[in-house]
Write a protein that binds this DNA or RNA. Sequence first.
DNA 1: GTTAGCACTCAGACCATTTGAGTGCTAATA
DNA 2: TATTAGCACTCAAATGGTCTGAGTGCTAAC
Lengths: 340, 340
Amino acid sequence: MELDERKMTILRAIIQNYLETGEPVGSRTISKYTDLNLSSATIRNEMSDLEEMGYIVQPHTSAGRIPSDKGYRLYVDMLMQDKQMEMDNLKLELNAKSEKLDNILKKAAKVIAVNTNYASMITAPRYRKHRIKFLQLTQVDTESLLAVIILEGNIVKNNLIHVNEELTQETLLKLNLMLNTFLQGLDLQEINASVMQKMRNESGGYSALISDILDVIATSLESEEVEAYTSGSTNIFKYPELNDSAKASTLLSALEEKKQLTELMYQEGDSERGIQVYIGDESPLEATKDCSVVTATYHIEEGVYGKIGIIGPRRMDYEKVVGTLKNLMSELDQIFKKDK
Amino acid sequence: MELDERKMTILRAIIQNYLETGEPVGSRTISKYTDLNLSSATIRNEMSDLEEMGYIVQPHTSAGRIPSDKGYRLYVDMLMQDKQMEMDNLKLELNAKSEKLDNILKKAAKVIAVNTNYASMITAPRYRKHRIKFLQLTQVDTESLLAVIILEGNIVKNNLIHVNEELTQETLLKLNLMLNTFLQGLDLQEINASVMQKMRNESGGYSALISDILDVIATSLESEEVEAYTSGSTNIFKYPELNDSAKASTLLSALEEKKQLTELMYQEGDSERGIQVYIGDESPLEATKDCSVVTATYHIEEGVYGKIGIIGPRRMDYEKVVGTLKNLMSELDQIFKKDK
DNA sequence: GTTAGCACTCAGACCATTTGAGTGCTAATA
DNA sequence: TATTAGCACTCAAATGGTCTGAGTGCTAAC
């Protein structure tokens, strides 16, 4: 059987109608809804064909039809190659000048959630390897040193180190110089035993302190799970099909935990560019089997990127979501470009 | 009428039973549950009295009784002055040495949520006024300066500032010296126009930069909303009485927003010490009218403290919750003491 | 190829009935 | 006088039957 023009129109009508109402849609509805001027009986025949081809399903005999994952997929694919969206204006109100990365991201997540009425999640950019760009120790008071570590991409980490004796200005300068000489441009793997040994040798009696500092660096680089922010997770209550306590609970847990979702977003073959759509069972994540997840990538610099995700019901308004995401992506790209 | 020994016992039995089951409890149950050896009829008489006194209510005629807010209140008050809890061992697994404040707090929130099966929230310590302890500018690369600001209580803030020209080492030293001389020990209110003017005068041509820096400081200090972490928010699905979508939704929104809850925790008359219990309508917060909220305070140093909160159903296991909180409070106090 | 008509299906609403847990009251008992 | 047994009563929730309406598939007519 062939998926001709008319079948397409009907399928599209079914999907759009279902997106609006959330109820299975019947033949009579479609016969009125479209401008094809076909009777419900004809529609029934076509629908029966569409069902056979797997694009729609009946939740039970004598109910209307709802789109299957395959049907959504077709619809989404059609959308994707379709005309460029007209952009509805969404702006991050940021005085970007002194705004920090995490604030920007939090706001972005919120903007998306509010605009789409779905749950959103955004991850901080993931650097392929965290190279040390710059290191600095400063005496804060008699008993503590502040270690500031700047990684490539201007991620700033800091940590207090407790010391017993006050260090002279001179010693600090020396230590700083040494640390930078040895460690600049390295990532965690490259700080191996031999580097560490050399540093200790040259430290002139401060080898204990050096160890402490290396410890701090190690935890800073290592524990770097990708940070993620969510927003609008309670939006899922707006969709009856997700709004039973078992489903809502697993979904919200996933959103709270973030970790799984992060993994999903950084999926293999994510192509680093463009927009990815997981419909229902297509998702490798158990918790989102009843949802659709749309992810997008924003870029900070070559090879450094983060992800935005939207989680909503299968009957998500894909058109709007994809539009909003594209929009926000370029917005973010802008901000980070200006930021340079 | 008087609340004699026997009535107390019965009330306690009703509450405890209701905590376990979540169902209204009837006279027959109590007559078997307690070791008073009274018939259900007698219990009925007593219950009728208790109802008249306002400690229990009937959800509808011919249902069992459930505790009223007043009843819970009595019960909680009894608990509070009761014997010291035996501590069940909960430990934060932390290698506290290099662990940062926010990590400790996140873990604490999690530990509580897991231990109690309620939702938990913890706020970072709130300083009455944020005084600047130490400031430092560092050149990171040709176009950016890193400004590190350490506030009293060792809260570290940092921000990148974009500059057009590279500064000499000497200029930086001078600027740093000046910044510290002028700003050390001040809080935001105290950085007024006259201080700013003086600084600009002495800056020797870097007044634009100084303005930028002051901007950064201002946002760092000002935007200091209390940070808060939540955990286990999905636990609320475990309690049928909260598990309808309207209630769950408002509650979860409150947990996601955090702001309202933070306000609740830093309530007027919070006495800075000890444990506070809000039962149902006692809470000034609309979103938690159907819940109970228990808050506790942990201390970092004189006058600097944060809050832990537990949110659960009215029929919360107050005994356990209060125990756990006391426990964790001392644990946290320990960690922060060691940390000094 | 399209349409009208008809029999059939099934979820959900509606209603009556039953069940069981719980109550209040009264009279008997210790 | 305090306690208890007994009984009539209430009401939520469960059960089960019936009806309704939206929807289908199939067939015959256009």
